[in-house]
Amino acid sequence: MSLNNILTNWSRYRKGAEEGGFHEYEHQWGMVVDLNKCIGCNACSVACYAENNLPVVGEARYAKSQFMSWMRIERYWDEPDLEPYQASPTANVDVWIETNPPAGKTALKPSMPGSYAEGLLEPGGQGFEERVGVFGTKGEMQDFGASFLPMMCQQCHAATCEPVCPVAATYHTPDGLNAQVYNRCIGSRYCSNNCPYRLRYFNFWSYYEDAWPEPLHMQLNPDLAVRDKGVMEKCTFCVQRIRVAKDEAKMENRKVRDGEFATACVQTCPTGALVFGDLQDPESRVSKLWRFHQVEQGKTKQNKQNKELRGYRILEGLNTDPSVMYLERVREV
C-alpha cells in the first residue's frame, strides 16, 4: 500500500464501525484466547522472541519498561467478578471503564488510593493491608490461583494507534492487521501513547548492538527485519508466516486453508489455549468460536442472546473493535 494511496483514500480506510465499517478485506486474521485453558506458562512469549527477532534488553533497561515482549502474560491477583472489590464509601465516584459495581458497592475511580493515577501499587507500603483488602482477595490468603492474561496486539479494526501516526507508518492492511512500516516510522510514539492496551514497544536503543553477541545472531529469523533505534514495533500476528501461507495458496490456486499455519505463539501453546484463523472464513475455528460465543465485530457492547457465554473483548467499550476474543476464566466456587 503506497503512502499516496493511504492519503487519497484515508477516509475510506478509516471508516469506523459506526459508519458500517470497512468491508473490503481479503482476510481478517483473528484469535481466540481461552483463559479456561491458559496456565500462564510463558511458552507463547518465548516462542515469539524466537520467531520475531525480539531483542533481550537486560535488567537495567527492563527496569525502565524498555522491554520488547510482543506477547506477554499479565498476571492479576483479584477477580472482580467473583470477589467484588470494595471502594471507600467516601470516594468521589464517577465512571470507570467497564465497571459494573454490584448493588451497594461503588465504582472505582482513578484518583482512589493505590489506583492507576496514584502510580504503582506498592505492597508493604503505607496502608497496604487496607488496599489489599480493596484489590486482592478478601481473605488473609490467596484462595484461588492467579488470573493470567496473554496480551498481544489486538489488531483492532478501529485502531486508536492508526489515525494519530503523522506519517502513516501504522495503517490497516487488507488482511485486517495493524501493520507497522518500520522504514516509514519516525518514532513520534503517538501510536504507543494512544494504545489502551500498552502493546506497542519502542526501540529506545539499537538493541542489536548487544542483544545477539556472536554466535547468537545466527539464530535470527531472515524472514523479517531486525529493527533499529527510533522505531516502534509490535505483534504482527507473524505476518511472515501469513505471507508464506498466502503465497503457497496462490501458487496452488486455492484459498488459504484453516489451520494450515499458525502464529508462533499459537503453534506452541502447550494447552491449546490459543486459536488463530481467518474471521472472514465462516468455517474457520475462530469464526465458529466467535459465533458460538455470540461476539460480533464492529460493536462497542455485545448484545448476546445468551448472556452466560464466555466470549468478550478487552476494553471493547473504547470502540477499538479488537480482533482477539477472550473466553472467560472458569472457577469452581
Binding site: L35, D78, D81, Y85, W96, R331
Partner: peptide, 16 residues
C-alpha cells in the same frame, strides 16, 4: 506495574 485489575474486565471469570 499493577497487581490488580482495578475493577476493569481484563480477566473475567465465570463459575464452573
Amino acid at each position: 506495574g499493577n497487581e490488580t485489575q482495578l475493577g476493569r474486565k481484563m480477566v473475567a471469570t465465570v463459575k464452573a
